[in-house]
C-alpha cells in the first residue's frame, strides 16, 4: 500500500508538471494580452512598460521557470485583475462561498440521491422507482441555470419565502444549495439504483437470504457496502467539481465565489490566476482519485494495489 501511494504521488508530480507546461504554453499562445481589448489601443510604449513591469517581456521559458519557482513556495504571484492582493489571498477570499454552498450541495445531495436510488432499487418497477428515475433524469438534463431560475421564481417571486439572490445571511444560501444539490441527487440516485440492482441479483445475496438473515441486515450490511464502490469513485471528483464553484449558479444567485474567476482569468489574460486555478484543480483531482483508490481497498479487500491478478 505504501509503495502504491508513493508511486501515485510520483505520478501526481509528473501530471502536475505536464499540465503546468501545457497550460502555460496554451495560455500564452492565445492571441492578445492583458493590456489589449480596450475600445482604444494602448500605445506601444505604455504596453511595453507594463509588460516589462509584469515580466511578460521575458522569454516564455524564463517566465515559466520564474512562475514555477514561486509555485514551489506557494507564491502564485499577483492577479492582474485584482492588484493589491496575492493570488493566494484572492482564492482564500473567493473560495469559501463556493466551498460552502457547493460542498453543502454535494453533502446534502449525495445522501438524498443514495436514499432515492435505494428506494428505487428496492421498489423496482413501482411508482417509487418511476418517480426516482424521472427525478434523476430531470436533474441531469435540465441545465443548472434553468433550475436556478425556477427556484428563484417559485420560492422568491411567487411564494416570497426566500430571498432571490445575494450573499451573507444563511437564508440566502438555501436556494443555491438546492441548485447545487440537483446534480448530486440525480447522479447518486442513478448510480445507487444501478449498483444495488446489480448487487441484489448476485448469488451471495440469495445465499444470505437462505441463511435467514434479515432483509434490513442484508441491505445495509452487505448490499449497500458492495454497491458503494462506484459511488465512492464519483463522490470526491464531484465534490471538487462542485465546491470550486459554478459560474452559472454563482451568477444566477449573485454569489461572490470562485466560479467567475475561471472565466474572467481567461478573458482578461490574467496569467497568474489562470495558472493557479488550473494547477489547484489539477492537484485536487489527482488527490481525489488517490483517496478514492485507497477507499476501494477499504471497501473491497479483494483489491490489492499493485498486485497482478492471479
Amino acid at each position: 500500500m505504501v509503495l502504491f501511494i508513493l508511486r501515485r504521488l510520483l505520478s501526481i508530480a509528473f501530471t502536475f508538471f505536464v499540465v503546468s507546461v501545457i497550460v502555460f504554453l496554451m495560455m500564452h499562445a492565445v492571441p492578445g494580452g492583458p493590456f489589449d481589448g480596450y475600445d482604444m489601443p494602448v500605445s506601444k510604449a505604455v504596453r511595453d512598460t507594463l509588460m516589462a513591469k509584469l515580466g511578460l517581456d521575458q522569454p516564455l521559458w524564463v517566465q515559466y521557470v520564474n512562475y514555477m519557482k514561486g509555485v514551489l513556495v506557494f507564491d502564485f504571484g499577483y492577479p492582474y485583475q485584482a492588484p493589491g492582493e496575492t493570488v493566494i489571498s484572492l482564492l482564500a477570499n473567493a473560495w469559501p462561498p463556493s466551498l460552502l454552498l457547493g460542498g453543502l450541495g454535494v453533502l446534502i445531495g449525495a445522501p438524498l440521491g443514495i436514499l432515492l436510488g435505494m428506494a428505487a432499487a428496492l421498489r423496482r418497477n413501482t411508482w417509487i422507482d418511476y418517480f426516482a428515475s424521472a427525478l434523476a433524469t430531470l436533474g441531469l438534463t435540465i441545465p443548472v441555470f434553468v433550475i436556478s431560475m425556477l427556484l428563484i421564481l417559485i420560492f422568491a417571486v411567487w411564494l416570497n419565502w426566500l430571498p432571490a439572490s445575494g450573499w451573507g445571511k444563511p437564508e440566502r444560501w438555501i436556494l443555491p444549495i438546492i441548485a447545487y444539490a440537483a446534480i448530486p441527487i440525480a447522479t447518486y440516485a442513478r448510480y445507487t439504483r444501478s449498483a444495488m440492482l446489480d448487487t441484489l441479483n448476485r448469488p451471495f445475496v440469495t445465499a444470505l437470504r437462505a441463511k435467514g438473515l434479515s432483509e434490513r441486515r442484508i441491505i445495509f450490511q452487505h448490499v449497500l457496502r458492495n454497491s458503494a464502490i462506484p459511488m465512492v469513485a464519483v463522490f470526491l471528483p464531484m465534490f471538487i467539481g462542485t465546491a470550486t464553484g459554478s459560474i452559472f449558479v454563482e451568477a444566477m444567485f449573485r454569489i461572490p465565489g470562485l466560479g467567475s474567476y475561471f472565466v474572467s482569468s481567461i478573458e482578461n489574460r490574467d496569467y497568474p490566476l489562470e495558472m493557479a486555478l488550473v494547477l489547484m484543480v489539477t492537484l485536487m483531482f489527482c488527490f481525489a482519485y488517490l483517496i478514492s483508490d485507497i477507499c476501494y481497498a477499504w471497501l473491497n479487500p479483494r483489491i490489492r494495489f499493485g498486485e497482478q491478478p492471479k
Binding site: 428563484i152 421564481l153 417571486v157 430571498p163 432571490a164 439572490s165 451568477a251
Partner: peptide, 19 residues
C-alpha cells in the same frame, strides 16, 4: 452597485423579488 445584476437574465428575477 452589483455588476452581477447587469445581465437581464439575473437582474430581472432579482427585480421581481424586490432585490
Amino acid at each position: 452597485i452589483d455588476p452581477t445584476l447587469g445581465a437581464p437574465e439575473v437582474g430581472m428575477p432579482a427585480f421581481l423579488a424586490g432585490d
